[in-house]
């Protein structure tokens, strides 16, 4: 038990060391790749707070990711406040959207919940797409400056290496907060809802209120991920709120293993590497993704980390 906990800690520290040294270790293009893995890993991990921990499958998480992306892009374009203030505002904006959508959605569960979140997610996409005066329609919002992180901190985050470090710090902090949430008393209640929401309500848990709380926290961190993603791409486009964007954290989480805290991060890494590799041969990479997903759902429902776990268990 403790041996395993220690092994985990060493692995985590080694991983952090590699990530910290990444710009020296890896070729230039890999800095971009790792930045994207970190951002989408955070997106997937915040999705998994709802899916893996609370037992609710959301198919509309791009709504919060997209809200974060647009709030960040618009603030940078129109007001150019310090970058960390932009991120905070974007995360809060996404949390507010999550509060509204969640208020409707947590009334239902399982497939009903999945459909509702999908439909509301598409509503956000439609709004972003149609509200041309504000969002520029399908052209998106581009041409905004990247401001200093805080007033007086003259770091140029337009430099990919600096942006990578900013992302690494924020994602690491967010991951730590999310992890603390999952092992907290609040997190225990969420896990009880995943296991058996009826028993939970007969243990005194006001089920909807906790589901909504999880929904909003999940939306908040998804918004933060979106707010990191738009400046990283130098543009916010409606596709960032589209349901195909919602599908990504679902796929990444299943790939890595929803039962594991780091599953979504691993899944994001494997997902983006696979995409890199397969799209160098063919445009139709979603086809292969579908085949992989079908295989995982039928034969490996616990994902890659589940496989790894079984392999470890089999050896010791």
């Amino acid at each position: 038990m403790t041996g395993r906990g220690a092994a985990r800690r060493v692995t985590l520290l080694a991983l952090l060391a590699v990530l910290a040294a990444w710009p020296w270790l890896a070729p230039y293009f890999a800095i971009f790749l790792m930045t994207e893995i970190l951002i989408l890993g955070l997106f997937a991990a915040s999705f998994n707070l709802l899916f893996g921990y609370t037992g609710l499958l959301s198919f509309g998480h791009a709504a919060y990711f997209g809200t974060g992306a647009y709030v960040a892009a618009l603030l940078l374009r129109d007001m150019a406040p310090p970058f960390l203030a932009v991120l905070a505002a974007a995360a809060v904006g996404a949390a507010v959207v999550a509060l509204v959508i969640g208020w409707f959605s947590v009334r239902l569960t399982e497939v009903y919940f999945a459909m509702l979140t999908l439909a509301f997610g598409m509503m956000v996409y439609a709004l972003v797409h149609q509200w041309r005066g504000l969002t520029g329609g399908s052209d998106g919002v581009a041409g905004f400056p990247l401001t200093a992180p805080l007033p007086g901190v003259a770091v140029n985050i337009a430099d990919p290496v600096n942006y990578y470090y900013l992302t690494l710090i924020l994602v690491a902090v967010s991951a730590y907060v999310l992890h603390r949430i999952t092992v907290s008393p609040f997190g225990l209640i969420l896990r009880s809802l995943r296991e058996n929401s009826e028993r939970a309500s007969f243990a005194g848990v006001p089920v909807r209120r906790y589901r909504l709380a999880a929904f909003v926290v999940s939306g908040l961190f998804s918004g933060l991920a979106g707010a990191l993603f738009a400046p990283f791409n130098r543009i916010a486009v409606p596709e960032m709120a589209h349901w195909t964007q919602s599908a990504e954290p679902v796929l990444m989480t299943i790939l890595g293993g929803s039962q594991y805290f780091f599953g979504p991060f691993l899944g994001a890494g494997v997902f983006l590497l696979l995409r890199q590799w397969i799209t160098s041969y063919t445009q139709e990479w979603m086809f292969f993704l579908g085949v992989i997903l079908a295989f995982l759902v039928v034969f490996l429902p616990r994902g890659l980390l589940g496989l790894f776990d079984r392999w470890l268990g089999g050896r010791s």
């Binding site: 499958l57 999945a114 599908a247 139709e284 990479w285 979603m286 086809f287 579908g290 997903l293 079908a294």
Partner: peptide
């Protein structure tokens, strides 16, 4: 996978969707 949680079937049919969309393309 009928015996499993209903969201698993949703995920599996989602995989079919990805496959069919690109197959048509």
């Amino acid at each position: 996978i009928y015996a499993r949680h209903p969201t698993q079937a949703l995920l599996l049919t989602f995989a079919f969707l990805l496959i069919l969309n690109d197959a048509v393309r």
